[in-house]
Protein backbone atom coordinates (compact mmCIF):
# COMPACT_ATOMS: atom_id res chain seq x y z
CA UNK A 1 0.00 0.00 0.00
CA UNK A 2 1.32 3.42 -0.92
CA UNK A 3 0.85 5.96 1.85
CA UNK A 4 -0.53 9.29 0.67
CA UNK A 5 -1.44 12.61 2.26
CA UNK A 6 -4.88 14.03 1.58
CA UNK A 7 -5.59 17.73 1.73
CA UNK A 8 -9.05 19.24 1.92
CA UNK A 9 -10.49 22.52 3.11
CA UNK A 10 -13.27 20.98 5.16
CA UNK A 11 -14.82 17.70 6.27
CA UNK A 12 -16.90 17.34 3.10
CA UNK A 13 -13.95 17.63 0.72
CA UNK A 14 -11.89 15.22 2.83
CA UNK A 15 -14.78 12.73 2.86
CA UNK A 16 -15.01 12.98 -0.94
CA UNK A 17 -11.29 12.24 -1.31
CA UNK A 18 -11.65 9.24 1.02
CA UNK A 19 -14.60 7.94 -1.00
CA UNK A 20 -12.91 8.31 -4.39
CA UNK A 21 -9.72 6.73 -3.06
CA UNK A 22 -11.65 3.82 -1.61
CA UNK A 23 -13.51 3.19 -4.87
CA UNK A 24 -10.85 3.83 -7.51
CA UNK A 25 -7.46 3.65 -5.80
CA UNK A 26 -7.28 0.60 -3.51
CA UNK A 27 -3.47 0.59 -3.61
CA UNK A 28 -3.36 3.93 -1.81
CA UNK A 29 -3.67 4.37 1.94
CA UNK A 30 -4.05 7.60 3.88
CA UNK A 31 -0.96 8.54 5.89
CA UNK A 32 -2.47 11.72 7.32
CA UNK A 33 -5.02 14.39 6.58
CA UNK A 34 -3.51 17.85 6.21
CA UNK A 35 -3.47 20.61 7.23
CA UNK A 36 -4.06 20.13 10.94
CA UNK A 37 -6.35 23.13 10.87
CA UNK A 38 -8.52 23.58 7.77
CA UNK A 39 -9.03 26.45 5.33
CA UNK A 40 -5.35 27.29 5.11
CA UNK A 41 -4.49 25.14 2.14
CA UNK A 42 -4.05 27.85 -0.46
CA UNK A 43 -1.33 29.48 1.67
CA UNK A 44 0.58 26.23 2.05
CA UNK A 45 0.87 25.09 -1.56
CA UNK A 46 4.72 25.27 -1.64
CA UNK A 47 4.83 23.06 1.48
CA UNK A 48 2.41 20.51 -0.02
CA UNK A 49 4.47 20.49 -3.21
CA UNK A 50 7.67 19.87 -1.23
CA UNK A 51 5.97 17.10 0.74
CA UNK A 52 4.88 15.44 -2.52
CA UNK A 53 8.56 14.69 -3.18
CA UNK A 54 8.36 12.15 -0.33
CA UNK A 55 4.81 10.78 -0.76
CA UNK A 56 1.83 11.59 -3.01
CA UNK A 57 -0.29 14.53 -1.88
CA UNK A 58 -3.90 14.57 -3.10
CA UNK A 59 -5.45 18.00 -2.78
CA UNK A 60 -9.06 18.93 -3.42
CA UNK A 61 -10.18 22.53 -3.33
CA UNK A 62 -13.06 24.59 -4.65
CA UNK A 63 -12.99 26.83 -7.68
CA UNK A 64 -12.09 30.43 -6.92
CA UNK A 65 -14.80 32.91 -7.75
CA UNK A 66 -14.73 34.13 -11.36
CA UNK A 67 -11.95 31.74 -12.38
CA UNK A 68 -12.05 28.62 -14.46
CA UNK A 69 -10.43 25.47 -13.09
CA UNK A 70 -7.18 25.66 -15.14
CA UNK A 71 -6.63 29.29 -14.07
CA UNK A 72 -7.26 28.43 -10.41
CA UNK A 73 -4.83 25.54 -10.69
CA UNK A 74 -2.11 27.54 -12.40
CA UNK A 75 -2.49 30.31 -9.83
CA UNK A 76 -2.08 27.80 -7.03
CA UNK A 77 1.24 26.52 -8.33
CA UNK A 78 2.50 29.79 -9.78
CA UNK A 79 6.28 29.94 -9.59
CA UNK A 80 6.62 26.30 -8.50
CA UNK A 81 7.82 23.23 -10.32
CA UNK A 82 4.97 20.90 -9.52
CA UNK A 83 6.04 17.51 -8.21
CA UNK A 84 4.62 14.60 -10.25
CA UNK A 85 2.83 13.22 -7.20
CA UNK A 86 1.22 16.50 -6.18
CA UNK A 87 -2.30 15.80 -7.44
CA UNK A 88 -4.28 19.02 -7.51
CA UNK A 89 -8.02 18.72 -8.04
CA UNK A 90 -10.42 21.62 -8.43
CA UNK A 91 -14.11 21.00 -7.83
CA UNK A 92 -16.30 23.10 -10.12
CA UNK A 93 -17.63 25.10 -8.52
CA UNK A 94 -17.66 23.39 -5.11
CA UNK A 95 -17.35 19.86 -3.79
CA UNK A 96 -21.09 19.95 -3.04
CA UNK A 97 -21.76 20.27 -6.79
CA UNK A 98 -20.09 16.86 -7.20
CA UNK A 99 -22.49 15.39 -4.66
CA UNK A 100 -25.47 16.86 -6.51
CA UNK A 101 -24.02 15.50 -9.75
CA UNK A 102 -25.20 12.06 -8.61
CA UNK A 103 -28.71 13.36 -9.18
CA UNK A 104 -30.59 10.12 -8.53
CA UNK A 105 -29.02 9.35 -5.18
CA UNK A 106 -28.91 12.96 -3.99
CA UNK A 107 -32.62 13.41 -4.80
CA UNK A 108 -33.36 10.19 -2.91
CA UNK A 109 -31.20 11.36 0.00
CA UNK A 110 -33.02 14.70 0.22
CA UNK A 111 -36.42 13.14 -0.40
CA UNK A 112 -37.21 15.33 -3.39
CA UNK A 113 -38.38 14.71 -6.94
CA UNK A 114 -35.44 14.25 -9.33
CA UNK A 115 -36.94 16.92 -11.55
CA UNK A 116 -36.11 19.46 -8.86
CA UNK A 117 -32.41 18.61 -8.98
CA UNK A 118 -30.11 20.90 -10.93
CA UNK A 119 -28.84 19.53 -14.22
CA UNK A 120 -25.48 19.60 -15.94
CA UNK A 121 -24.64 21.32 -19.18
CA UNK A 122 -21.51 22.03 -21.24
CA UNK A 123 -19.78 25.19 -20.02
CA UNK A 124 -16.98 27.33 -21.39
CA UNK A 125 -13.95 26.95 -19.13
CA UNK A 126 -11.47 28.91 -21.22
CA UNK A 127 -10.17 25.94 -23.21
CA UNK A 128 -11.01 24.64 -26.65
CA UNK A 129 -13.55 22.16 -25.40
CA UNK A 130 -16.70 22.88 -23.44
CA UNK A 131 -16.75 21.04 -20.14
CA UNK A 132 -19.79 19.50 -18.54
CA UNK A 133 -20.54 20.70 -15.05
CA UNK A 134 -23.60 21.10 -12.87
CA UNK A 135 -25.45 24.28 -13.63
CA UNK A 136 -26.29 25.93 -10.32
CA UNK A 137 -27.26 29.57 -10.02
CA UNK A 138 -25.29 30.25 -6.81
CA UNK A 139 -22.41 28.50 -5.07
CA UNK A 140 -23.41 24.85 -4.69
CA UNK A 141 -23.37 24.77 -0.87
CA UNK A 142 -25.36 28.01 -0.70
CA UNK A 143 -27.92 26.64 -3.14
CA UNK A 144 -28.19 23.44 -1.12
CA UNK A 145 -28.58 25.11 2.28
CA UNK A 146 -30.79 28.02 1.20
CA UNK A 147 -32.92 26.59 -1.57
CA UNK A 148 -32.77 22.91 -2.49
CA UNK A 149 -33.10 21.57 1.06
CA UNK A 150 -36.31 23.55 1.54
CA UNK A 151 -37.93 21.18 -0.98
CA UNK A 152 -37.02 18.17 1.13
CA UNK A 153 -39.77 16.00 2.54
CA UNK A 154 -37.50 14.80 5.35
CA UNK A 155 -38.07 17.11 8.28
CA UNK A 156 -35.01 15.99 10.26
CA UNK A 157 -32.68 16.32 7.32
CA UNK A 158 -34.10 19.72 6.49
CA UNK A 159 -33.40 20.85 10.05
CA UNK A 160 -29.82 19.58 9.81
CA UNK A 161 -28.89 21.15 6.48
CA UNK A 162 -30.88 24.33 6.03
CA UNK A 163 -29.19 27.59 6.87
CA UNK A 164 -30.36 29.34 10.01
CA UNK A 165 -28.65 32.56 9.08
CA UNK A 166 -27.81 34.66 6.09
CA UNK A 167 -24.58 32.97 5.08
CA UNK A 168 -24.02 29.98 7.34
CA UNK A 169 -24.64 26.32 6.59
CA UNK A 170 -26.96 24.13 8.65
CA UNK A 171 -26.03 23.36 12.23
CA UNK A 172 -25.52 19.65 11.43
CA UNK A 173 -24.40 20.06 7.84
CA UNK A 174 -21.40 17.74 8.05
CA UNK A 175 -23.26 15.22 10.20
CA UNK A 176 -25.88 14.95 7.45
CA UNK A 177 -23.58 14.91 4.42
CA UNK A 178 -20.73 12.69 5.60
CA UNK A 179 -22.80 9.49 5.89
CA UNK A 180 -24.34 10.25 2.48
CA UNK A 181 -20.89 10.54 0.93
CA UNK A 182 -19.68 7.34 2.59
CA UNK A 183 -22.75 5.20 1.94
CA UNK A 184 -24.96 6.54 -0.86
CA UNK A 185 -23.03 8.85 -3.14
CA UNK A 186 -21.93 7.11 -6.31
CA UNK A 187 -19.10 8.94 -8.07
CA UNK A 188 -19.64 6.71 -11.11
CA UNK A 189 -23.08 8.34 -11.61
CA UNK A 190 -21.77 11.78 -10.70
CA UNK A 191 -18.82 11.86 -13.09
CA UNK A 192 -21.07 11.92 -16.14
CA UNK A 193 -22.39 15.28 -14.91
CA UNK A 194 -19.04 16.74 -13.85
CA UNK A 195 -15.87 16.68 -15.91
CA UNK A 196 -13.88 18.09 -13.00
CA UNK A 197 -14.88 15.04 -10.92
CA UNK A 198 -14.21 12.76 -13.86
CA UNK A 199 -10.68 14.13 -14.09
CA UNK A 200 -10.02 13.66 -10.39
CA UNK A 201 -11.11 10.03 -10.70
CA UNK A 202 -8.80 9.56 -13.71
CA UNK A 203 -5.87 11.12 -11.84
CA UNK A 204 -6.37 8.83 -8.84
CA UNK A 205 -6.74 5.80 -11.10
CA UNK A 206 -3.43 6.72 -12.75
CA UNK A 207 -1.76 7.21 -9.36
CA UNK A 208 -3.15 3.88 -8.24
CA UNK A 209 -1.76 2.16 -11.34
CA UNK A 210 1.63 3.78 -10.73
CA UNK A 211 1.87 2.29 -7.23
CA UNK A 212 0.09 -1.03 -7.79
Amino acid sequence: MKKVYIVGEDDVTKAIIRKIMGKYAPALEIQAELPARGSEIKHKIPEFNALAATAPVILLTDLDTDDCAPVTKSRLIEGLRRQDDFIINIAVDEAEAWLMADRVNFARFLGIDIEKMPVSCPQKQGGMKALTEMQIATKASFYLTHSLILESTKADLKEQIKSHGRKCKGKEYNTALLPFIANQWNPENAKSNSDSLHRMISRLQALNAKYS
Partner: peptide, 23 residues
Protein backbone atom coordinates in the same frame (compact mmCIF):
# COMPACT_ATOMS: atom_id res chain seq x y z
CA UNK B 1 8.44 20.31 3.53
CA UNK B 2 8.10 23.53 5.57
CA UNK B 3 5.05 22.85 7.72
CA UNK B 4 4.91 23.68 11.42
CA UNK B 5 5.10 21.07 14.17
CA UNK B 6 1.30 21.35 14.50
CA UNK B 7 0.79 20.13 10.92
CA UNK B 8 3.41 17.43 11.36
CA UNK B 9 2.10 15.86 14.56
CA UNK B 10 -1.59 16.67 15.07
CA UNK B 11 -2.78 14.65 12.04
CA UNK B 12 -0.87 11.69 13.52
CA UNK B 13 -2.65 12.05 16.86
CA UNK B 14 -6.14 12.35 15.36
CA UNK B 15 -8.13 9.12 15.77
CA UNK B 16 -8.49 7.52 12.33
CA UNK B 17 -12.26 7.09 12.51
CA UNK B 18 -13.21 10.28 14.31
CA UNK B 19 -15.17 11.48 11.25
CA UNK B 20 -17.54 8.55 11.85
CA UNK B 21 -19.02 10.51 14.76
CA UNK B 22 -21.32 11.90 12.07
CA UNK B 23 -22.82 8.40 11.70
Amino acid sequence: AGFTMADAVLPLTKPGNVHNMAN
